[in-house]
Design a protein around this nucleic acid. Sequence first.
DNA 1: TTGTAGGCGTTATCAT
DNA 2: ATGATAACGCCTACAA
Lengths: 321, 321
Amino acid sequence: MSNTIKEVAKLAGVSVSTVSRVINNSGYVGEKTRKKIVDAMDTLRFEPSSIARGLVSGKTSTIGLLLPDVSNPFFAEVARGTEEAAIESGFTVILCNSNWDLERERMYLNVLKGRAVEGVIVIGNRSAERDLIGAVSPLPCVFVDRKVSSDQSYIWIDHEKGAKIATEKLLSIGCEHIVHVTGPRKSTSARARLSGYLKTMKKSGMEPKVLSGNFRFTGGYEAAKALFLNDNPPDGVFAANDMMAIGIIQAANELGVSIPNDVSIVGYDDIDMAKCTSPALTTIRQPANEMGRAAFSLFKNRVSEMKIEFDAKLVERKSTK
Amino acid sequence: MSNTIKEVAKLAGVSVSTVSRVINNSGYVGEKTRKKIVDAMDTLRFEPSSIARGLVSGKTSTIGLLLPDVSNPFFAEVARGTEEAAIESGFTVILCNSNWDLERERMYLNVLKGRAVEGVIVIGNRSAERDLIGAVSPLPCVFVDRKVSSDQSYIWIDHEKGAKIATEKLLSIGCEHIVHVTGPRKSTSARARLSGYLKTMKKSGMEPKVLSGNFRFTGGYEAAKALFLNDNPPDGVFAANDMMAIGIIQAANELGVSIPNDVSIVGYDDIDMAKCTSPALTTIRQPANEMGRAAFSLFKNRVSEMKIEFDAKLVERKSTK
DNA sequence: TTGTAGGCGTTATCAT
DNA sequence: ATGATAACGCCTACAA
């Protein structure tokens, strides 16, 4: 059942070079011969060995995708976008879950090099920039959701602006006591969101209030319990991601705090789940799929020192007045 | 960048086969020669080409993972389990999203063959069994969540039993009008769940009632609207998966139907989201991560005609009395 | 203990 | 328009 170009040639009664020509349609091939070969190819269900091709060309048509955890909805969607774009270009994606672990990030980068991938796409990593770039070098690398100062390229969303939009939304509906629940300090995107919130609050002359979170459901849930049990509960909450916002909604529901009457909630990401909460979550949309696709295209076009910026957009649902 | 074995040989003043021997440390190599070669290797920073190796040995330490869509939480978790187990064995996983499309399934299987993967793990496919096995042959293949009659191996959960447990739970809390919202007809696991529901209802002498669903949020949502607006609304609903159950909860909340007072809901899968709904969803847990790991181990140990069965378990939360 | 040579599946360069 | 044949980088008998 293993089919090589040789067997196709034999079945079609021609030489391997002619078969190779029709595969790559290069050079001249007579119509009749071409047809015979094409027929032979699909009766044999022939698929050229990309390994052998790789040997000749030195290329593997493979990239590595390094992320903390595919089972996180945001990363899953980025992964999906990357993979879709890759396959359209004849590339294949190796999946690597670093599990938020620095040691594993480094390990994977080495594995990927050994696999002779042509490039790496990195998302949501925690490594220090210099470590990361050292480890990945000399492979071309695209960073997603992280600005990087060297000559690598990256995909970036202006989270500061997104946070500004979120905060302004809360302001515009008359909230007077707006709290921000942050993501982990090490996350650059979490820091950008915090900064956007702080600046917007300052500009509007409001008093900011910040609680530390961790990007996880429980983080939001616990923050909200503390918040709503307080004697001065907020009337607006901006959570640094949707998972935490959902935790907040859950806590509010349990405590009998009415959304959006007593408090309005804005999240960040627009994961699928955001449509399904009660009430449905108003949030800042990150186009995760497109970001994944863009990352691949940056790699594919071998553009270094290039950035693509996306716009974070407000998606209004029922958790805000 | 990377040097070849030939250059190492030249620098060390030996033949390539001797170098090859030290690389794979096979056969006899004199201590002095070995040292010379090792030195040469690292002054040249030599790294053997995994492409060339793959061509010769036919082994790539790579497997393909074919699933409909990584951004579906259940598949994402299986993917994670598979990838974790794989890397622990020095294997690498190529991610393939078939997008529920038969044509793409076949296309990917061919791509994977071309990549010389050593095996394939297939989840949630829709292809007819014979097509699938024909397309993947002669690669070893493990099917997840699908029974297969040939000599392939598979991972299986007894969904009929899971459905029985779900239905019995509803019965045990006194529900007298229990509806089942199904998954797509083509899905074997959906059919098994339906069958388990039907048998259990029959045994208890209750009248079954079945609505067609599609495994998606909207499917549950629409089914529930129809159900609760009816003049004879159910007091128990068993949804064939969590996404639909969440749609049902959403619809109930919007309609002012109280869960679990007016109606109890049981889902299936125990995706992360199930903890986060209001009220939190009682559901049948599938150990997705373990299933992924088990799939890899079945492949790794080259066991064919082997099956691993998992048990579906009830996770009680707040959507049932 | 070490070297020689053939081959893995393709592509590319010559000839024919 | 088509066919030999030499690489690509490595492994593995088989010789020496």
